[in-house]
Simulated scan of single mutants.
Amino acid sequence: MNVENTIEAVAAAAKPAKIADDKDMLRAARDLTKDISEAKPSVYWTDLLLSAGVGYAALAGAILAPGVPLAIALGLVAVLTLYRALLFNHELAHIHRNALPGFRLAWNALVGIPMLTPSFMYEGVHTLHHKRTQYGTIEDPEYLPLALMKPWSLPVFVLIALLAPPALVLRFGVLVPLGAIIPPVRNLLWQRASSLSINPDFRRRPPEGDMKPRVFWQELFGMLWAWVLIASVFVLGWKPILVALAVFSLVAVLNQLRTLVAHLWENDGEPMSVTAQYLDSVNVPPPGLMAEVWAPVGLRYHALHHLMPSIPYHSLPEAHRRLTRHLGSGSTIDGANHPGMWHLVGRIARSTMIMR
């Protein structure tokens, strides 16, 4: 029986919430990664600028392409590169605010505002997903027990993302200015539609401290950009915005697919140990190459990230190698390793078909 089958057998026999902490793994994660815990500005800036630059160039090419095949090819390049650029919002939610001067502002200007997903929609929300006592509970904004739900919930979960880009245009272009003059609209918008969360019961608390001015400026520029997009139809016609919405919709679906396989979603709402949270999360380590496409910016090591949330994305491969070498084959560190996206989709789908 291989390691993965062993872990599945253990999971079938005990609830995730009952898994005790592996103290050796937690100690190794702390001790073996101290020298690789700082973000490298050159890596972050180069990666972001190349991803955004290639993405927008490909998007412009898809809009201007004379033929459909070329437009589709360039559109796919735009999807993958802008998707990678967008996922730096995950890093922004974790890195210390003084670690990369100007990076948050640049990301919002290049990606967050143009794609109508400014950093406030993830900051202050994603960290709740990493709180030991909240992960996998009703208070976790980024957790649904998808593996314990009905089979139809999985395609609905993924395909609803197609509506995200037009919904964001509506949010920023219509509801933000409406909320400025009607407080109940503003309160509802903030509580229910200001975060990249998947838990329908999550209600966001009002912003505090230095988050308040950031929210104001990001929403203001998001509103102005949404108006530009709407007005562009009357100046440039429908094609540019329809192509852009198609690209951004595919980015949203790809991100939702990645979210679907970021965890096993097997917890029923009880608090979990750190090791249980690790085993309920997913690593897709090499040698496979495709994981770097659908889970870029370190997210192919999502379980490891839950073990060490402050480690920068470029250090996760080395951290995984060190822990695997130190703890040995067949240890708990291997329990979160999975071969790929479709294997994980199949596992979660099979779990939804079990009568409970």
Rank of each mutant, 00 (worst) to 15 (best):
K212E: 15
V156C: 11
L87S: 13
L220M: 06
L163T: 13
A109N: 09
I181E: 10
P166V: 08
P145M: 08
G209M: 07
K131F: 13
L175G: 06
I95P: 00
F216R: 14
L220C: 09
T127L: 12
Q218K: 02
P184F: 14
N187K: 11
P114H: 01
Y122L: 15
M211Y: 09
K150V: 14
L105R: 15
L144W: 02
V156L: 15
V185H: 04
L168A: 13
R104E: 15
M121C: 03
R171Y: 07
P207Q: 07
P166R: 14
T137F: 06
I95R: 11
A78W: 03
R171P: 00
G112T: 12
F157E: 00
G112R: 10
P207K: 11
P151M: 03
T137L: 02
F221S: 07
P155R: 01
E142M: 00
L168P: 01
L196W: 13
L146V: 07
L163A: 15
I160Y: 02
L92A: 14
W190E: 11
F157D: 05
R204I: 01
L189M: 15
A85I: 04
E91T: 12
A147E: 01
M149Q: 11
P177Y: 10
W107S: 03
F157H: 08
W152S: 04
P184Y: 11
A85T: 10
D140A: 07
L86R: 07
H129K: 02
G222V: 04
Q134H: 14
L80T: 07
P206W: 03
A147W: 01
M115E: 06
R104N: 14
G222K: 02
Y135S: 08
P114M: 04
A164P: 00
Q134Y: 12
L100N: 12
H129P: 08
V158I: 13
L196R: 10
A78N: 03
G124D: 09
L154W: 14
S119R: 10
S194P: 03
I182E: 07
P114N: 08
A167H: 05
R205Q: 15
P145N: 09
L189W: 05
R203S: 06
R192H: 15
A193R: 03
I113F: 05
L159C: 05
L148P: 00
L196D: 04
F103I: 14
P151Y: 05
S153Q: 00
S195P: 09
M149Y: 04
L100A: 12
V174R: 05
A161W: 03
D201K: 15
G222P: 00
P184K: 10
P183S: 12
L146C: 12
A180I: 06
I160C: 03
L148M: 03
L87G: 03
T81I: 05
I181D: 07
P177V: 10
N89I: 11
G173D: 10
T117D: 02
L148T: 09
H129E: 12
G179W: 05
A106I: 01
L82M: 12
D140E: 04
W190A: 09
W152Y: 08
